[in-house]
């Protein structure tokens, strides 16, 4: 489970470099997210534009990553592909995150 991360204008942008966040990589994803977000800006943008599939384990791992940030930091999701977006909608977890259709729209809204 590879992630790439950069900091730009007070935002930590973490991109998932893989097509799946599923049970096989959920733990690895959580560990990699913790490492990429343990310091740095308060707002983390998780770029999911390369992810074609998540299952409930992947969804749980994303929620866990947000909780690891703590209540004073914030996680936004960007670039959800149709199948990924549907999992968030069906479980209503899209109401827990700020969700943006593209990374650019997330950055435009969140940078200041």
């Amino acid at each position: 489970m590879q992630l790439s991360a950069k900091t730009e204008e007070q935002l930590r942008i973490v991109s998932v470099l893989g097509s799946r966040i599923d049970a096989a990589v959920a733990l690895e994803f959580k560990d990699a997210m913790r490492i990429q977000t343990e310091d740095g800006p308060d707002t983390v943008v998780l770029d999911l534009s390369e992810v074609q599939f998540i299952d409930s384990s992947g969804l749980g791992a994303i929620v866990a990553s947000m909780k690891t940030l703590g209540a004073n930091r914030k996680m936004a999701l960007a670039g959800l592909t149709p199948t990924v977006e549907r999992v968030f909608q069906l479980t209503r977890m899209d109401s827990v995150f700020s969700v943006f259709s593209t990374l650019d729209s997330a950055l435009a809204e969140l940078r200041h």
């Binding site: 299952d55 409930s56 384990s57 969804l59 749980g60 791992a61 929620v63 866990a64 947000m66 909780k67 209540a71 999992v87 069906l90 479980t91 977890m93 827990v96």
Partner: peptide, 14 residues
């Protein structure tokens, strides 16, 4: 509360 957000229990619902 934030810290009680579910990290599982989605599978059978789906």
């Amino acid at each position: 509360d934030f810290e009680d957000l579910p990290e599982g229990g989605f599978g059978w619902f789906l």
